[in-house]
Computed example of a mutant assay.
Amino acid sequence: MIKDFLKKLLFSIKPLSYLARYSYNSYLSKKRVKNQFHDFYKLSMDERFDLKWSNRILCLDDNTSNTGFDRHYIYHPAWAARVLVKITPEKHIDVSSTLSFASTISAFINVEFYDFRPANIKLSNLVSKAADLTNLPFENGTISSLSCMHVVEHVGLGRYGDPIDPYGDIKAINELKRVLSYDGNLLFVVPVGKPVIYFNAHRVYSYEQIISYFSDLELVEFALIPENENDGGLNYHANAEDVAMQEYGCGCFWFRKK
């Protein structure tokens, strides 16, 4: 009885203790910024700006020793851009990858971007249109340079308003293979590690699963983005065993249709 009571008490105190620490740290951060404002105000000698404490927007989480970033979404477009430099296509088709990738590479490549939810973006060398990844609007074997990165793991889970379909990812993969031309290049990225579905969010695939889904294509290059930053950035020498050790790694696959 006493043991159970103490256990319940511990569980009830722990969240409160965390909340107290968070509130105290937040108080100290706000106090620090207010002191900085007063110092800044005293040093300000010109009238270029309207400077009032009432105009403050407190950014309390940015005073860090290092610049943080999303490892998946910084490294995988960087990997893909390096591949495109090797391929040097006249035109590139991207299906639903992060929009920043299509917009950036459009500076030096003609890009067509397709998404289930089309983006209203206007840039030179960039065309944005609507498309369903499970039913792409292209003829068989007509695309020589194609990318679909950090996308297929979502298909069929309803997150983006798409229909619920347990095999939506397989349908999407088959569509990518269908439209890819002979000797065409496909840049494909998904979360990798121990296979699991986090419903409504995404799937995580094993290395073996992806290789089997694309068994009729040639794997030109594989790079692993490990979940732990201490294991490096883009690991070009990773194998299936390295992938199996991940919970939420990022697998970058460069396939070619032969």
Rank of each mutant, 00 (worst) to 15 (best):
S12I: 15
N55I: 03
E90P: 06
C148I: 12
P77H: 10
S26F: 11
C250P: 00
N239R: 01
E139H: 09
E90N: 14
V192E: 10
F138Q: 10
I57R: 03
N185W: 11
S44G: 04
A240C: 07
F101R: 03
V192Q: 06
P118F: 00
I225W: 03
L43T: 05
E208P: 04
V243G: 05
R178H: 06
S97H: 02
N200F: 01
S124C: 10
E139F: 14
S124H: 12
G156D: 00
G232W: 04
P77G: 01
N230I: 07
I164T: 04
Y167K: 07
T88S: 13
T67C: 11
M245Q: 10
V111F: 04
G249E: 12
K31D: 11
K14T: 10
N174W: 11
H150P: 02
S181R: 00
N66E: 14
Y207I: 07
T67R: 07
V196C: 11
N66T: 12
P163E: 08
V192D: 05
S103C: 14
K194Q: 11
D231P: 02
W53A: 08
K42S: 04
I211Y: 05
H150S: 15
A223I: 00
V127W: 08
S106E: 00
P195D: 12
D162W: 00
M1H: 07
D183Q: 15
A107F: 03
V192N: 02
R256N: 09
S100Y: 10
K7I: 09
E218Y: 07
V179Q: 04
F138K: 08
W254I: 09
K257N: 15
S215K: 15
V204S: 02
C59F: 07
P191L: 06
V189Y: 13
S215T: 06
C148S: 09
Y213A: 00
Y27Q: 09
F188R: 04
F108T: 13
S44D: 11
F116Y: 15
V95P: 10
L180C: 09
W53F: 14
V151F: 05
G184P: 02
K86F: 00
G68N: 13
G193I: 01
S65Y: 10
L51V: 15
N66H: 10
L234Q: 07
K14V: 14
Y248Q: 13
H72I: 07
L219T: 13
S100H: 13
L176Q: 03
E241Y: 09
I105C: 03
K257E: 06
V33E: 05
S17M: 15
F5V: 15
Y114E: 02
D61K: 13
K34S: 10
A80Q: 13
R21Q: 12
L224S: 02
E221G: 05
L136E: 08
T67G: 09
E47G: 10
F116R: 06
H154G: 01
I225Q: 02
N235W: 11
Y207T: 04
C252I: 06
N140E: 12
G233P: 02
F5W: 10
Y27V: 09
D216M: 05
S12C: 13
N135M: 12
G251L: 12
E218R: 07
D94S: 13
V95C: 13
F255Q: 00
I87R: 15
P166H: 06
A107N: 13
E241T: 14
N120I: 06
L58Y: 08
T88R: 14
N55V: 04
E90L: 15
Y27T: 09
E218C: 05
L58R: 05
K42Q: 08
V83P: 01
L186F: 07
E47A: 10
I109Q: 00
